[in-house]
Design a protein around this nucleic acid. Structure first.
Lengths: 213, 213
DNA sequence: CTAAATAAATGCATAGACTGCATAAAACAG
DNA sequence: CTGTTTTATGCAGTCTATGCATTTATTTAG
């Protein structure tokens, strides 16, 4: 059942189409590439293309919304760290990185997404598509941390705000990813972003930063 | 030149189409309404529809990105308040509210947008479409506040993060708008949201909130 | 190994959003 | 009233996307 011919062929076809699409889009710009062009380059029918990815955008940003693995979720809900936003952001970025094992392809995708408004919009929207699931995950963490279920509504509000903020920050992170050097550490990038947020929300307007530390 | 027949007719046509579109979409759901249906209801050709709004979504969320008025921008750049994020958010929401004088129509739009994922995505994206202009506005404020232009790059980063965060928070605010009662104060909504953000970013995990304060 | 069952790939027809281009109708300026 | 400038429309065509029927390939049961 596993590793059968069918499964392997399916994976191969998917990869062929994806690579063709990314390559074409990098060369001509996403909006100047038609689905037919991608199909011809990857030798499948248009119908097959849509069977795999559902939409033209899907071939770049992924046909199905990315959900963190159970391991990541566990690590998040049980984290002892006190910074909810940082931990959540870490979970999300980890699962994004892990989704694409091929580093070069990962970066090509990022580059493409950042230079194509349409794609960036979609990718950003992905987070809120799964909003309810994320809320559930955050609520689990609250629960494990022993927060009283009494004020569940307030906690849920808080969770939604965390997700909204994360979606915003992710835009920033993606931008950095796309222009990063090979050795760049995502961990550092995240902690810098969190620090930046702190500066902003605790803004005292006087000597906000810059030369500081 | 002003108040001419042409201009008035144009405004009337636009309003007719918008009302027809919103009404139809509220009744049948945005995705079940075709452009042809809107055209028939408002007695214009399809071509005219696209001349006015550019896209099916445009008729709901507005054909052109909303930019705050000069008054709002001035108020923002010269604000003495120390909370950059709060001030920026205030400027944005004010200009959104002011854009639609008809309160009932404003709420219909919000309701529609919140119940239609596709529209919500677009509306959210609107903010980043004008990102560069917003960055410029924020930089002006920094300048007026006497921040050294020496660390301009860092300040620009900070500005972009503020915009990203605002985009996130706006999602939350819109949600509240759509479900709010007539008398609800936007000012209160904003200050509650800001407070929520503070709780999150200063999170101490122990007694984070709920019964507190 | 063969035949039935299952899954995948394809072709075809069609809807619906959107654009370019040419033309007709309306409003305006002098 | 006449020439100019804006709007409105018609029409043909492109492109994404979906439903349905058919063919082809893989798997599994006997």
């Amino acid at each position: 059942m596993n590793g059968g011919l069918r499964e392997r062929k399916r994976a191969a076809t998917q990869e062929t189409i994806e690579r063709a699409a990314i390559s074409l889009a990098l060369e001509h710009g996403f909006e100047n590439v038609t689905v037919d062009m991608i199909c011809e380059a990857s030798m499948v029918s248009q119908r097959t293309f849509f069977n795999y990815f559902g939409s033209k955008e899907g071939v770049i940003i992924g046909g199905t919304p990315a959900m963190p693995s159970n391991d990541h979720i566990d690590a998040f809900t049980r984290a002892t760290g006190s910074n909810l936003l940082a931990d959540f952001l870490t979970m999300i970025t980890s699962s994004l990185l892990e989704r694409e094992p091929d580093a070069a392809l990962f970066k090509d995708r990022r580059t493409l997404i950042m230079r194509t408004p349409e794609l960036l919009i979609r990718e950003t929207a992905r987070m809120s598509e799964s909003e309810d699931q994320f809320v559930a995950i955050i609520m689990t963490r609250y629960e494990i941390q022993g927060l009283s279920p009494a004020n569940q509504p307030e906690l849920e509000d808080e969770a939604r705000m965390v997700i909204a903020l994360t979606a915003g920050v992710l835009r920033y992170v993606r931008h950095r990813w796309a222009s990063s050097q090979p050795g760049a550490s995502t961990r550092d990038l995240l902690s810098n972003s969190i620090e930046l947020i702190h500066r902003i929300t605790n803004d005292h307007s006087q000597q906000p930063k810059g030369t500081a530390h």
